[in-house]
Write a protein that binds this DNA or RNA. Structure first.
Length: 798
RNA sequence: GCCCGAGUGGCGGAAUAGGUAUACGCGCAACACUUAAAAUGUUGUCCGCUCUGCGGAUGUGGGUUCGAUUCCCACCUCGGGCACCA
């Protein structure tokens, strides 16, 4: 037999499969299976060997499902809007569309080299007007249903570039282009009301087949915590300076500071109150604060701080006392001071806390620095002390009773904030809103969608988004009154584009709807979703939110988009670092395919180790799987029409094992089982045609080219990619006799062959006849014996 | 700092409803084939010792058990994520 020529064989079958459209989405009306990869951002630098790991896994899974009679939807597309292409355009004046298209062509070619079984007729591109038309439509649905709104928000702003910066463009507090200091600037921004769904986003996680760590991360991100809101009245001495009936219309909050706490049980230990620098009460109390000049100086500085500056302060908490302002601890009537400090956040809870330095680390650090009173009110076992009538209560009980006593209310708060979706960028989907002098904010009529990105733009290294200066874009009439109007020039966060693409894949060429109801019903939800763990919170949370929002509005009738989720582990470079151009340690899949073949590349990435572990690439190790490929090639020379019991047993065992392992994403052990089987067949230098057929069928999802070639030579009926998964025979797997370990006091002293049906008595009897066992048992009493059928016999002696 | 995950041969790793630790692959060594090399095949390859045998070993130290890589407690190291959320 000739040597295995991967280049010839692989290109031959890639052509045939493509001609016969073997990967077309199943439409036969069988049970469906939607297998989805997180679609990539087509970056200019192309794929490295780490990218396709997840794609290979979903491909194997899809092939397995097709062979098992499912209609499979397995699509691929491009998350094509984004910052890198725009930055590149600013540098080179090459339009992002051009670079993006080029990158897509390159990515696609690289992906096709691996024979991933995508249905390319369903390819989508988020930067095409046919797609973003529906991204805009979804924005409008949310807008019309009160789930999208505009408000001011702080953004990173570079004074010198006159532009908004993404967090990743802020390096050490400076602009990554010009190095100038980045400030926080208030600008009107669009938000999605994800916080409306906080509870559902937490509670619906329970029913999902997702990694537990991912669920926990999402829960922590949403950060639901229950506690109490408690009011601290201002002391009379403070009150005299302000006419509260004038400044405050809410009777209940006249002259008080409302705080949120998760630990109302520690109220007796609250020795001061802290306001966030943004707290509105500071302005209202202006005349009562004796050192207001200094306070104002502090708050102005604090508000202008970037996140990075706040973080870098670490344990060195800053703050300033409000002189002349005193509040009363409602639990014990004590008068306590009030501070403003930037470790308290304006956007969380009520923007004010009661500080309990004995039981909160941050309060403790602050109290020590400013020499404030520290009172312990809960002991190590959670029982109250120094708390008057509540002494001796458990902290759980005290939470409720103390809140009740001081007239507080039980309250739940969330860490999650609304999703800021507007970007002051060019390369994104325009927000379909029009501003009219007369009518104000008007949504673009659905019939006028898409709002197409203007092309008469310049990419200048400075200034605002190029979209702002486009005449053609902004020169429009108000759809409501017909008067002159101007378009919203912000574009949407790319996470918006990627938060609904799984719906589009069900019906990608629909010009009338984002996807037809029957298509959505047919395919959704996604059965298996695979992608990197870096999307644990943002993308996965946003996609879940959009699904829930669309369900609420009535466009879909399910509440979760992804039933099961798997993360692929990173492929680390051979030098132990991340693969990156700047380290010069990138391995290009094209080179690997050229040298070893696509089948070997696929096998290697799956054989490296557990799918979700991070593992170092090692080119040497590819030899192992390449040798395996050649071994299978050689085994085909031994095909006979005779089989034997042992051969049948190992083939059927392997069929079972490989199927089970694919189902569980345990590809490494599946390949190991295939290797063990191949080794056996080669050693006995014979394999029946029937068994060989089964073997290449279960090998096919991993090494489709090799299997198809062997199939065409030796089996010849149709294509292996269209064949049905072989059925194993449980009777052929079972064997009568089995080796068990015989232990004395838990140490293995002998191996014994026994029948599976033999009784414990018989097995013990046989074991005691073995020389090496007698040696250990002699002179001792047998205390007891433990026999685990087919595995181990332990004889306990004294 | 908090949260999550992981520590098994020279290396990637296998085995967890507790039951023969080191499957499979890489590497290494010897042998066969060869003028030679490559390729391929065969055999060996956790460590130690007083070596037909015995003892030890799954990050460290304890515990539960007839039996622990697997369960429990404490600690150490590495990787990932998040940043003061009251």
């Amino acid at each position: 037999m000739s040597e295995y020529n991967h280049k010839e064989i692989e290109s031959k079958w890639q052509k045939k499969w493509s001609e016969k459209k073997v990967y077309e989405t199943g439409i036969e009306g069988k049970e469906k299976c939607y297998v989805l990869d997180m679609f990539p951002y087509p970056s200019g630098s192309g794929l490295h060997v780490g990218h396709p790991k997840g794609y290979i896994a979903t491909d194997i899974y899809s092939r397995y499902k097709r062979a098992n009679g499912y209609d499979v939807l397995h699509p691929m597309g491009w998350d094509a809007f984004g910052l890198p292409a725009e930055n590149y355009a600013i540098k080179t004046q090459i339009h992002p569309q051009e670079t993006t298209e080029k990158a897509i062509v390159n990515f696609k070619e690289q992906i096709k080299g691996l024979s991933l079984s995508y249905d390319w007729d369903r390819e989508i591109n988020t930067s095409s007007p046919e797609y973003y038309r529906w991204t805009q439509w979804i924005f409008l649905q949310l807008y019309k249903n009160g789930l999208a709104y505009k408000k001011n928000a702080k953004v990173n702003w570079c004074e010198s570039c006159k532009t908004v910066l993404a967090n990743e463009q802020v390096v050490n507090g400076g602009c990554d282009r010009c190095g100038n200091v980045v400030i926080q600037k208030e600008l009107p921004q669009w938000f999605f009301k994800i916080t409306d769904f906080s509870d559902e986003l937490i509670d619906d996680l329970d029913a999902l087949d997702w990694p537990e760590s991912t669920k926990i991360s999402q829960k922590n991100w949403i950060g639901r915590s229950s506690g109490a809101e408690i009011e601290f009245q201002l002391a009379a001495s403070t009150r005299t300076n302000v006419d509260w009936t004038q400044t405050n219309t809410d009777k209940n909050s006249v002259g008080s500071i409302k705080v949120f706490t998760t630990r109302p049980d520690t109220l007796f230990g609250a020795t001061y109150v802290v306001l966030a620098p943004e707290h509105p009460l500071l302005e209202e109390l202006k005349d009562s604060i004796e050192n207001f000049v200094y306070v104002e100086k502090y708050t102005k500085k604090a508000i202008n701080k970037t996140d990075l500056e706040r973080i870098s302060e670490g344990k060195n908490k800053t703050g300033i006392i409000l002189e002349g302002v005193i509040v009363i601890n409602p639990a014990n009537g004590k008068e306590i001071p009030v501070f403003v400090a930037d470790y308290v956040l304006g956007g969380y809870g009520t923007g004010a806390i009661m500080a309990v330095p004995a039981h909160d680390e941050r309060d403790n650090e602050f109290a020590k620095k400013y020499d404030l009173e520290i009172i312990e009110v809960v002991d190590e076992v959670g029982v109250l002390k120094n708390s008057g009538e509540f002494d001796g209560l458990s902290f759980e009980e005290a939470k409720i009773k103390i809140t009740e006593k001081v007239g507080g209310s039980i309250k739940t708060t969330y860490r999650l904030r609304d999703w800021l979706v507007s970007r002051q960028r060019y390369w994104g989907a325009p927000i379909p809103i029009i501003f009219c002098d007369k009518c104000g904010e008007v949504s673009v009529p659905e019939a006028d969608l898409p709002v197409v990105l203007p092309t008469d733009v310049d990419f200048m290294p400075t200034g605002e988004s190029p979209i702002e200066k486009s005449e053609s874009f902004h020169n429009i009439k108000c759809p409501s009154c017909g008067g002159s109007a101007r378009r919203e020039s912000d574009t949407l966060d790319t996470f918006v584009c990627s938060s609904w693409y799984y719906l589009r894949f069900t019906d990608p060429n629909n010009f009338k709807e984002f996807a037809s109801k029957p298509s959505i019903k047919r395919w959704m939800p996604v059965d298996v979703y695979v992608g990197g763990a870096e999307h644990t919170v943002l993308h996965l949370l946003y996609a879940r939110f959009i699904t829930k929002a669309l369900q609420k509005i009535g466009h879909v009738d399910f509440k979760e988009p992804f039933l099961s989720l798997r993360h692929q582990g990173l492929i680390i470079a051979e030098d132990g670092r991340k693969m990156s151009k700047s380290f010069g340690n990138v391995v290009n899949p094209d080179d690997v395919i050229d040298t070893y073949g696509a089948d070997s590349m696929r096998l290697y990435e799956m054989f490296m180790g557990p799918f979700n572990d991070s593992i170092s690439w090692n080119t040497k190790n590819i030899l192992g799987v390449r040798r395996f490929v050649e071994k299978v090639w050689r085994i085909s020379e031994f095909i006979t029409d005779k089989s034997n019991q042992e051969e049948d047993r190992i083939i059927h065992t392997t069929v079972k094992k490989v199927g089970d392992d694919i189902q569980d994403f345990k590809f490494n052990t599946a390949i190991s089982a295939l290797m063990v089987c191949a080794k056996h067949l080669e050693e006995q230098k014979s394999v029946s045609k029937e068994n060989f057929k089964m073997f290449i069928q279960i090998l096919a999802p991993f090494a489709p080219h090799l299997s198809e070639e062997l199939w065409s030579i030796y089996i010849g009926e149709g294509l292996i990619v269209k064949s049905r998964w072989p059925k194993y025979d449980e009777n052929k797997i079972k064997s009568e006799n089995i080796n068990i370990a015989v232990q004395i006091n838990g140490k293995v002293r002998a191996v014994l062959e026994v029948g599976l049906s033999e009784s414990e008595e018989d097995v013990v009897g046989k074991a005691l006849k073995i020389n090496s066992i007698q040696k250990y048992a002699e002179g001792f009493n047998i205390k007891k014996t433990i026999y685990i059928k087919g595995k181990v016999l332990n004889i306990v002696v004294m």
